[in-house]
Simulated scan of single mutants.
Amino acid sequence: MSVSVTREGRQETPLLSVQGLTKYFPARDGRIVHAVEDVSFDVRRGSTVGLVGESGSGKTTAGRAILRLVEPSGGRALFDGIDLFSLSARDMRAYRQRLQIVFQDPFSSLNPRMRIAAIIGEALDARGFPRGQRRAERVAELLTLVGLSPDHASRYPHEFSGGQRQRIGIARALAVEPEFVVADEPVSALDVSVQAQVLNLLGELQKRLGLTMLFIAHDLSVVEYLCDEVVVMYLGRVMERGPSRLVYGFPRHPYTKALLATSPVPDPTRRRTHVPLHGDIPSPIDPPSGCVFRTRCPEAIAACAGVVPPVEAIGGGHHVACIRHHE
C-alpha cells in the first residue's frame, strides 16, 4: 500500500488501494476475455477518483470487481488496510454497509413493483434499521438529502424522470451511510442538462458527507468537473493516472490526448491541440501484443509491439504507460 503526502505535509494511507487487479472471463469458444489486466491505483479518504475510458475499456468491470460484485481473478483491494479479495463471502457481507454502488441505468436498478419507501427501506433493512415511524422519517430525510420531496416515498419508479430515478438510486446507496461509493456512469443515460444537476448533487454530497468515491465515466469532461484524480483505462489496462490538473493540463499518453480531443470545448475560439481517436477498440479476447493501444495510436513505433509498457511515475503523482514518454 502506498502512502501519499497531504498539502500540510502529513502522511496519509489511502482508504482504498487497488493493486494488480485482474479479471478474466471465459469465452464460449474456450478462449479468455482479458477484461481487466494488472490495474493499480489509490483512492485517498474523502477524495473522488475518476475511472475513464471508452466502452470495452474494463472500467465498469474493475469497479464491480473491487466491490466483489464480480469475483476478481487476481490482485488485491486494500480497504482501510483489509484485503477485500481475501475475505470469505460471510466476512464480505459485513463490509457491504461501508461500500455501495450507484448504477448506470436508474430505471432497471429499481424494482418497478415497489414503492420508493420500500426500495430505500430494503437498504435500511441491511442496517437493521427498525420499522415504523422512525424508518419513515429516515426515508424522508434521504429523499430530501438528494433533492426530492418526502411525498415521493409513496410513488413508484415509473412516475419519475430519469434524473429523479437516479437521485432515488443515490438515496438508496446512502441509506446505509457508506464510506466508499462506486458511481458507475451515473449520468451517461441522462440528458445533458440533467447530467449537470446530478453531478452537482454528487459533488455536494461528497463534501457534505465526507464520502470517498470512484466515479466511472467515458467522458473526460464529466470527470474533470468532479474528480481530484483520474485513471485512464484502455482495453483493461491503465494508460495514465494522476491528479486531474496534470492529466488534463499536461496529458502524456496518446490515448488521453485522443480522449481530450473528443471532449466538448465550451469556448468556440479555443483550438484543439490533440488528434481525435479513430477506429474501434480491439477485442479483449485477442488484445494486441505489446502496448494494447498501439493499433490505434498516432505515435506508435515498431518497438510498441514488443513490450507491455509499465505504468511509470513521471513526477507529482503523475504516471504513464508509454515507452515514448521519455522522448
Rank of each mutant, 00 (worst) to 15 (best):
M1T: 15
R7A: 10
E8C: 02
G20K: 10
F25Y: 15
S40Y: 06
D42C: 13
V43N: 04
L51C: 08
G56Q: 13
T60G: 13
R64H: 08
I66Y: 03
L84H: 15
S86G: 15
M92N: 15
V102P: 05
P106Y: 12
N111G: 07
R113M: 07
I116T: 09
A118Y: 01
I119V: 12
R138V: 06
E141H: 06
E141R: 13
S149V: 02
H158S: 13
E159K: 04
F160E: 04
G162M: 07
R167V: 15
I170A: 05
A173R: 02
V176D: 08
L190E: 01
V192T: 13
L199A: 03
N200Q: 03
N200I: 05
N200T: 11
N200E: 00
L202K: 00
L209K: 04
T212R: 01
T212Y: 01
E224S: 11
D228L: 08
G236K: 03
P243E: 06
S244I: 12
G249S: 07
P251C: 04
P251Q: 08
K257A: 00
T269Q: 11
R272A: 08
P276M: 00
L277R: 03
S283R: 05
G290M: 01
V292R: 12
F293C: 08
G306P: 00
V311M: 06
G315F: 09
H318G: 11
A321H: 02
H326L: 06
